[in-house]
């Protein structure tokens, strides 16, 4: 039996594998970020990850690895600034967002000849996913899922009612740090699939769509997972056949599902 044409291209298979992993972890992080009004953190970390990509390009190391390093460190810095309450929470995000973008532009200017692949990092391109990337994404996705499962009940409690969670003995500050680190990891892993400019959509839209269904916490996560997987996988396949930009196609499919849900729910 012959495989369908799409599966004969190893880059598509790699893209589908990496895409499924990212599709699974993005809503798991997203539900906590969205419900805690932290949606903008995803966007900020995505911009930060671009600075990480630029550093990787300059140093000649894997951009995913340098992006992971830079976003992890920045996520701790953001959390520090926010909890110190010296400046407003959103201002802390704005500082990091514009600051890291500025750094990225300067560094990319230094790394000549990088402009062609810059487009891939901004908007995603599964063609750039190497076999090593797939293993890296698989491995780290497993780590993200394992940590989320381990601290699931604590994260749910903090998200619903941080004060009551604190009074029940949950270490709220450590849990907030864990959530930030996992967000940083997720954002970095999503770069090859949708690009830094569209990562926030992957983390936020499936969750916001699932929330329209008004179900229990557990069922909302399952619904968001289904929406996310369907969008990412169909986005990759459609963009392959129709020769469209993958990241944009995925996000547009997510938005279509969201709009459909709004219409049905009216």
């Amino acid at each position: 039996m012959e495989l369908p044409q799409i599966f004969q291209y190893s880059f598509v298979v790699r893209g589908l594998l990496a895409g499924s992993m990212v599709a699974i972890i993005a809503p798991l992080i997203g539900i906590f970020l969205v419900l805690r009004r932290y949606s903008l953190i995803a966007d900020t970390l995505a911009h930060v990850s671009l600075a990480g990509v630029a550093i990787g390009a300059l140093l000649g190391i894997s951009p995913i690895i340098s992006a992971i390093g830079v976003t992890l460190i920045s996520s701790l810095g953001i959390e520090r600034l926010r909890s110190a309450k010296k400046i407003y929470g959103e201002s802390a995000l704005a500082l990091f967002l514009s600051g890291s973008l500025a750094l990225a532009v300067v560094l990319l200017g230094l790394a000549h000849g990088f402009t062609a692949s810059l487009f891939n990092y901004l908007f995603g391109s599964i063609v750039t996913v190497t076999e090593t990337d797939v293993y890296l994404i698989l491995g780290l996705a497993v780590v993200v899922i394992a940590v989320l499962v381990a601290f699931y009940k604590e994260l749910v409690y903090i998200t619903f009612d941080e004060e009551a969670a604190h009074v029940s003995g949950i270490p709220t500050r450590s849990m907030n740090t864990v959530l930030m680190l996992l967000s940083a990891l997720t954002v970095s892993l999503a770069i090859p699939i949708v690009g830094v400019l569209l990562i926030a959509a992957l983390i936020v839209i499936p969750v916001v769509t699932a929330l329209q269904l008004r179900m229990s916490f557990a069922k909302t996560i399952i619904a968001a997972e289904i929406i996310s997987l369907v969008s990412v996988l169909s986005g990759i396949v459609i963009s392959f056949y129709a020769n469209l930009a993958t990241g944009g196609t995925i996000v547009l499919i997510m938005l279509l599902i969201f709009l459909g849900m709004l219409l049905v729910k009216r």
């Binding site: 419900l35 749910v156 409690y157 969670a165 949950i170 929330l211 008004r214 229990s216 916490f217 069922k219």
Partner: peptide, 15 residues
Amino acid sequence: FPATVGEVVLMGRYA
């Protein structure tokens, strides 16, 4: 917030 009565009360068991 997407939580049922059962899920909210279960949080009380976490301590």
